[in-house]
């Protein structure tokens, strides 16, 4: 059992939790992920590590409530426990030798982009962060990004905060203004990663993406997380989750992640109804 030391609602659908898992915290690096189960009957879901504190033995996770499992996880409170928490899994994001990097985050993907920006910043890399959200109320980790970036651009779809527009607009403007990046690291919805990669390809800038496909074991066993990278089949759990964004078949990845959409919606509604019924009975 793994204790929830802290729980913070970052916005209406995104929650942060600090989980006490000292062995995982000892090894965790930005870009790696964990697999967790909320309770004994639960599904195994992968969540990328948002932060870690080796001394306190803490792993921070930030998740969006999208399905039955994340809904159940969100029902847990500080001081309560979750059944299983395995990691750190996958390969760490490659940061060695980078002098100047644009870190691009979209939505809840910013939770994964943040530890990468932080590590780069701590090792002396110049970090330009571009984070995009639909609207002001959904913005997360603003202060954290500001502290870890030499330049921070916040983009909203509706212009309710920062600049109006997409992250690609901001990135393009920076590149056009003469900023020379060794690498662009982009984490967010698959569609966003696809368009950032199309842009950076034009300019010939190496781009790393973090893939988050459907996964069960996280150790290479099920092959459910497979994707095509440079014409070869790769497993996100052991070969990734980071890949060269110019080689990833994003369209296939989007298709594959939609495999269980109808089922997830059904389970989510079921879980919500259960909680509602529980509240009424309480």
């Amino acid at each position: 059992m793994y204790k929830i030391n802290k729980k913070v609602c970052l916005n209406s659908t995104v929650t942060l939790m600090d989980i006490y898992a000292p062995l995982v915290a000892k090894k965790a690096e930005p870009g790696q992920f964990v697999i967790l189960r909320v309770d004994d009957e639960g599904e195994r879901i992968p969540l990328t590590i948002a932060d870690y504190d080796r001394e306190k033995g803490i792993i921070t996770i930030i998740f969006q409530i999208v399905g039955a499992t994340t809904e159940k996880l969100n029902q847990k409170n500080e001081g309560e426990y979750i059944s299983d928490f395995a990691g750190p899994l996958g390969k760490a994001t490659h940061t060695d030798g980078l002098k100047k990097v644009a870190v691009v985050g979209g939505g809840v993907g910013c939770a994964i982009a943040y530890p990468v920006a932080k590590k780069l910043h701590e090792q002396g890399t110049v970090v330009h962060s571009i984070v995009g959200f639909r609207t002001k109320d959904l913005i997360i980790l603003e202060d954290e990004f500001r502290a870890a970036s030499d330049k921070l651009l916040i983009m909203t779809d509706d212009g309710s905060y920062g600049e109006k527009g997409l992250v690609t607009n901001a990135l393009k403007a920076l590149i056009e203004s003469g900023e020379n990046y060794d690498e662009v690291i982009v984490i967010g919805p698959v569609i966003m990663m696809k368009f950032v990669c199309l842009l950076t390809k034009e300019y010939g800038i190496k781009t790393t993406v973090s893939m988050n496909p459907i996964m069960i074991d996280g150790t290479g066993m099920c092959g459910g997380c497979r994707l095509t990278v440079g014409g070869e089949v790769k497993f996100a759990c052991v070969d990734g989750p980071d890949f060269d964004g110019h080689l990833v078949d994003f369209d296939e990845a989007m298709e594959r992640s939609s495999m269980y959409k109808p089922f997830e919606r059904h389970e989510y509604d079921k879980a919500c109804n259960l909680f509602k019924a529980g509240e009424q009975n309480a």
């Binding site: 066993m221 099920c222 092959g223 497979r226 298709e255």
Partner: peptide, 20 residues
């Protein structure tokens, strides 16, 4: 534990599983 695939066209379609 690592499943093998045949490396034929269409193996990454939705509805293709490894037995694992």
């Amino acid at each position: 534990g690592l499943p093998r695939f045949m490396n034929i066209k269409g193996e990454n379609l939705k509805g293709v599983y490894s037995a694992n």
